[in-house]
Design a protein around this nucleic acid. Sequence first.
DNA 1: TTATATACCTTGACAGGCGATGTATATTGT
DNA 2: ACAATATACATCGCCTGTCAAGGTATATAA
Lengths: 113, 113
Amino acid sequence: MAITADLIRGHTETIILAHLYNSASYGYEINKDIFEKSGGHYELKEATLYGAFRRLEEAGCIESYWGDETTGARRRYYRITPRGKQFLHDSIAEWEDTKKLIDILIQFEREKE
Amino acid sequence: MAITADLIRGHTETIILAHLYNSASYGYEINKDIFEKSGGHYELKEATLYGAFRRLEEAGCIESYWGDETTGARRRYYRITPRGKQFLHDSIAEWEDTKKLIDILIQFEREKE
DNA sequence: TTATATACCTTGACAGGCGATGTATATTGT
DNA sequence: ACAATATACATCGCCTGTCAAGGTATATAA
């Protein structure tokens, strides 16, 4: 039942912050980048994406502003804040710890053959 | 905000199945094992544990039976089924994929210094 | 003029995890 | 004798992140 998407739960914000680290971007583009970066294996659902933006902005990890496009659909850009960078560093450190922990916990003694 | 426990979400069933792979056990003991195996860094909450047992049993991944203790509190033992072993193998394969995917998605271009 | 791509956003439901609480038995300390 | 602790089970209601579905609007290609 559990598909990959289920295991990514909790990493959405980290993924977004990593994409914003060096340049501001907007929802649609971020999601396309993630899709390509994942080799077409993963893509955020829009509701998940915008939910994460809201939480990150409330937490002061990102700031948003409207782009000045004169043509095409309007875009809301997001830029990462110093707090967001700190949060990203902490999240990645936590991920490294969690990875090790899960690897230990799912070890099992294989039956002798 | 996201603490380690949040990132373990979705792995509870895999962790339990790994612990049951070679020998049946019961809730309290499994949780103690996990606590020790994690070096005291992680422990399942009881509600989480028993909820996972229920789901795993409904899915046919484990079977339960009462122990025959003549003293002390009764124990409900769980043993893994062939279906559970299959599920475990699949979950671990999925975890390996997910690990790689997340590692790719949280990469970011570090600023030049 | 219809479809597709770009781009935003919200609502309601679901599922896993958690805090709190409850039950019962056995052992250890005072 | 009594309290505290450890063992061992289980449930209830809440919280939170995710998702399916739906909605709005602009520009371009068929």
